[in-house]
Write a protein that binds this DNA or RNA. Structure first.
Length: 269
DNA sequence: ATGGTAGCACGGCTA
């Protein structure tokens, strides 16, 4: 089965581009981020007319995640546990099953974290956007520990807003102090990886120049001035089934594109 | 230092 992640940057503006990609790429399942829409105002026909099931976890104006799937979506949960006061829609889970077995899927939109606000001792200012990012990642780690305990294939996909390494940015020095790349962020990401995940893309493709996001400004895509921040993490059960992983960078050259492009993996399920 | 672009929704925030 082909599974994918795509930050679409607004479902209301991305209808044609999303439809083109679904028709061309034919993913069996895709997690979407930044739908920027409530559940009630999401244009469901766009998805359902193509034979996909749809589960949304929306929010007015910002954020919002969804899962589209040709297979039925079972045991759907919405929201990242661990903070009842967190109203931001950034996390959704579901299970899909084939004759060969089941896969638990997480679709996530990890907080951007900018601007980085630090106290004199270097700790994040409480209540600030950067503290929210790190707190969110700690909650993510806790939830992933629970999912790993299920001992079944698990794919954790989405816009991580994390540049893992220098080679994942065209101009790493321009990002050095940014919330997407500063050491504290990357350490939190590596802590999650070390729970026992494999980053699918780097099992197939080495080296610089492979990105999933290019700013709309200053012709960033034409200059390939991008960053790789959308990731597919697989637990050991799912990694054993991995057959391919690629980035659909061509999508960025289309009409009215998102600033992100899809990343997908083929899993032997 | 600023402004450059885009989405949502119609003012200002987020990225």
């Amino acid at each position: 089965m082909k599974i994918a992640s795509f930050n679409i940057n607004g479902i209301k503006a991305r209808g044609p581009a999303l439809a083109r990609w679904l028709d061309d790429a034919q993913p069996d399942l895709a997690v979407l981020q930044e739908i920027k829409s409530t559940d009630e105002t999401f244009p469901r026909a766009l998805i359902e007319d193509r034979g996909y099931n749809l589960e949304t976890h929306g929010q007015k104006g910002f954020n919002g995640v969804a899962i589209v799937s040709k297979l039925p979506l079972e045991d759907v949960t919405r929201g990242l546990p661990g903070d009842e006061s967190d109203a931001q829609a950034r996390w959704i889970e579901a299970t899909v099953s084939t004759g060969a077995g089941a896969l638990r899927v997480v679709g996530l939109y990890l907080p951007n974290g900018n601007p980085v606000e630090l106290q004199a001792d270097g700790s994040p200012v409480a209540g600030g956007k950067y503290a929210y990012k790190l707190d969110w990642m700690a909650r993510m780690e806790a939830r992933l520990r629970e999912l790993l305990a299920l001992e079944m294939p698990l794919a954790v996909m989405g816009d991580y807003n994390i540049i893992p390494q220098d080679e994942d940015a065209a101009r790493p020095d321009a990002w050095r102090d940014d919330a997407l790349f500063r050491l504290q962020s990357r350490k939190a990401y590596r802590r999650i990886l070390h729970l026992g995940f494999t980053e699918a893309f780097r099992t197939r493709t080495n080296g610089p120049g492979h990105y999933t996001f290019w700013d709309y400004q200053a012709g960033a895509f034409e200059r390939n001035d991008g960053i790789r921040i959308d990731h597919i993490l697989l637990n050991a059960y799912a990694a054993d089934l991995l057959r391919e992983c690629r980035i659909d960078s061509d999508v960025r050259a289309g009409e009215k594109p998102s600033d992100h492009v899809p990343i997908w993996a083929e899993i032997a399920l």
